[in-house]
Nucleic acid binder design. Structure first.
Lengths: 212, 212
DNA sequence: TTGTTTTTTTACCATTTGGTAAATCCACGA
DNA sequence: TCGTGGATTTACCAAATGGTAAAAAAACAA
């Protein structure tokens, strides 16, 4: 068995683990952890249930593996925020990257949303070890920009929360948006314009007044 | 039995239905629909499982009843948005009411978030009959304000989405915020300041320039 | 008190679901 | 070609879970 102390995963192993994780992403993101069943994942993957348990130690193992592997991808847009770049440009570009990600990886967004909603029982360690340091680092960068007068006074932590909330909203609450806007159109082009305007307004330095 | 064609619910019936719905809110909001069990709800309510099924026709009946009853409360802050009021004040007050609601009714927020995340399978009719008309009405109000020049050009639909996303975020993603900010402090006071600044900046009419 | 209705409990049941044991199949190197 | 180890299937199982029937208990009207 491809157990913990495995040496080299065979071609079949790599392929099937990938197939299973992709199927699990589909099912977990749609039904949540408890709502998903191994039978659904097996059907989606085109494998039998025992065969799936041959590659993973159990349902929770699949879920944790999925979350851990996705963490890097998920944090990538924030990693790219460059302390050396132009503050306003960096943050607005970050908003755009996050919105793009909510369009291209909606399943991943919903998977994380589900997990956090339940209190992050299975991903909490990852949040402490990966998300928190990155969050603190980038908050410090933004705070530095504020101190340097390159941005108006603002709250870095809550700015980032607002960016997360508004961009991920279009993936996590897609069902609601479809009811309110109609199912045909992708709301994101207009969302992009709106968010750029909103965060742009927040980041605008007030022009030095004539009498100042 | 207190069936569909019941006439007058007794005192016991009213009390127990209320107790059950409150327990169900606690359990459903914490574990989602599939993750919640009738045994958990029964334990939380201090009643036996068959006794709960004496008052409701099943798990789904409890869930739907809960969502329907909460809909009114949930939409109330938006109902209060007054077409006759000052546009900027009305919208910023709406933001504040929504943030207050995310502090005082976090379980309700998570209940709805769970339901929407799963594709709103059980609450979709309510969204069409209650949420959509209200949403359209208030979007029209805001659009009218823009046309009247009382607000800068902005997208009413996505403005409301942004308000929902940013305020509900503090209830729905509380687990994440606690990890990033520490579990002791309530982030909402600073969130309130941040959100007022952000939406305030968006709603600001640019001052007429001297050369315009 | 007594008879009737409402409420609650006890004892179940069928299905679902995560998981396992063991037999079988199959790829592949010697 | 044949043997060996990895991969897959078949046949299960125990626990959890939504739900029910019917008896018992409690409330209440007369």
């Amino acid at each position: 068995m491809p157990e913990s102390t495995a040496k080299k995963p065979s071609r079949i192993q790599r392929r099937n683990r990938r197939v299973i994780l992709d199927a699990a992403l589909e099912v977990f993101s749609k039904h949540g952890y408890r709502g998903a069943t191994l039978d659904q994942i097996a059907a989606e993957a085109g494998l039998s249930k025992p065969n799936i348990l041959y590659y993973f130690n159990g349902k929770e193992d699949i879920h944790v593996t999925l979350l851990s592997q996705l963490m890097e991808t998920w944090l990538d847009p924030l990693v790219e925020l460059d302390p050396e770049g132009d503050p306003r440009r960096e943050i607005l570009d970050y908003v755009e990257r996050k919105l793009t990600m909510s369009r291209e990886l909606p399943r991943e967004s919903r998977l994380f949303a589900n997990e956090i909603l339940q209190g992050a029982p299975r991903i909490e360690p990852e949040l402490h070890s990966h998300l928190k340091p990155l969050f603190d680092e980038k908050c410090a960068v933004i705070a530095g920009w504020v101190t340097a007068g390159k941005l108006p006074p603002l709250d870095p932590q809550h700015l980032i929360f607002s960016i997360w909330a508004t961009t991920q909203h279009y993936a996590d609450f897609e069902a609601q948006a479809q009811i309110l806007l109609g199912p045909e159109i992708d709301p994101r082009p207009r969302a992009q314009a709106h968010l750029q305007a909103m965060f742009g307004a927040l980041l605008d330095l007030p022009e030095p007044s004539a009498n100042g």
